[in-house]
Design a protein around this nucleic acid. Structure first.
Lengths: 198, 198
DNA sequence: CATTACTGTAGAACAATGTTCTATACTCAG
DNA sequence: CTGAGTATAGAACATTGTTCTACAGTAATG
């Protein structure tokens, strides 16, 4: 930890705190995620977390919102069509989770004590789910997922991805080749629910 | 909270602490799970948690082991055969999770700060997974899941159940009728991965 | 350049947490 | 009835999130 005698410019504090928080989370997990540790890593006073965010919960909410915003963007560039089906979408989801583990931890894996996302933060999460719903709806217009209600099918997709990925992140995924098993899993689910079964 | 002036008989303390811990967990979640709160609920001295378990982590490990043992028992009474396929197993899994939310929280949902299951506790968890693997193996002997490696297929089953259930417990399951959507989901997965697709 | 308003910093302070220790007092087996 | 075992209360310590206050570096204004 380099010593910084002078003060940090205001504009730098927010991003540096954000980066430090994500680093700490990925290195030490939720147990290392303390105000003092994050401030030390960012070479900033603990008070800065209260001036620039709203304390620990505010920092978590910032990560939550950034995470859901990124995930939404990742999902939006995919599409579900007769050739591709849900493949790209599922892969985009898993890639996001494994690439941004800290975000995914805050969003889905760990309930941080005292942290409850605000109404606006919950709205961002809902909007991400709506993106998935829109994907399914457009797929249904070409005959995919025609057996199911749109929201239900979207929930099944989400369950598929989250189920595999979360067990993977908890290190209770015993598949020999996780990449390959994920592909097989998604192809299997797709076979089962994407097409019509009268 | 009734006042108890006299001491609690030794044999009662362990089960009372266990019950209190599960109650607190289901009522207040991980944030309410504190030594002092649990002891107060059990009408017992905080020190008892150190005498009868190994502190907070020891109590969590006891819940972990009890949970995996129960889940294993629930899964063992099901079977995967040509008529039933994975249906009973999936339902048993979900029923366990929703009936024993506190256990499921410790096992899969929340990473409690400082708690890491011991080697023997991890072995109990692994044994539960092996039960699932055995179920799949016996199913494969009658031609189900024949496209996949045994462990991989078991992992897919687990992912299916855990994905749906965990989103349900996190309250980010938007299906109108969760019971029905779960049934549709499992049937869909079963259609996709249980039978051979050359 | 000098002054002023802003704001980042250090550090004390508080309640609550997990944990350990000690002295006390209850209980049950001998 | 006596003594060993053990549950209890309570103090004590470090660490946590949070708040407050006094101080000092920064930067814009005159």
């Amino acid at each position: 930890m380099a010593s910084r005698t002078q003060r940090t410019p205001s504009q730098m504090i927010q991003p540096e705190l954000m980066a430090a928080a994500l680093q700490i989370l990925s290195e030490s997990g939720p147990e290392g995620f303390t105000i003092r540790a994050i401030a030390r890593r960012a070479e900033v006073a603990p008070m800065a977390i209260y001036n620039h965010f709203d304390g620990k919960d505010g920092l978590l909410e910032a990560i939550w919102i950034e995470g859901f915003t990124m995930l939404r963007r990742e999902l939006e560039v995919t599409s579900i069509n007769p050739n591709n089906k849900l493949f790209d979408t599922a892969h985009a989801y898993r890639r996001f989770a494994l690439t941004h583990r800290s975000h995914y931890t805050v969003m889905f894996m760990h309930r941080f004590i005292g942290f409850t996302p605000s109404a606006s933060a919950a709205a961002v999460a809902l909007e991400t789910f709506q993106t998935l719903v829109r994907l399914v709806k457009s797929a249904q217009s070409v005959g995919i997922f025609s057996d199911y209600d749109t929201v239900d099918a979207a929930q099944m997709l989400w369950s598929t991805c989250h189920g595999f990925v979360s067990l993977e992140m908890l290190d209770i995924n015993f598949a020999a080749d996780r990449d390959e098993t994920f592909i097989d899993f998604v192809r299997g689910v797709e076979r089962g629910i994407a097409n019509s079964h009268e």
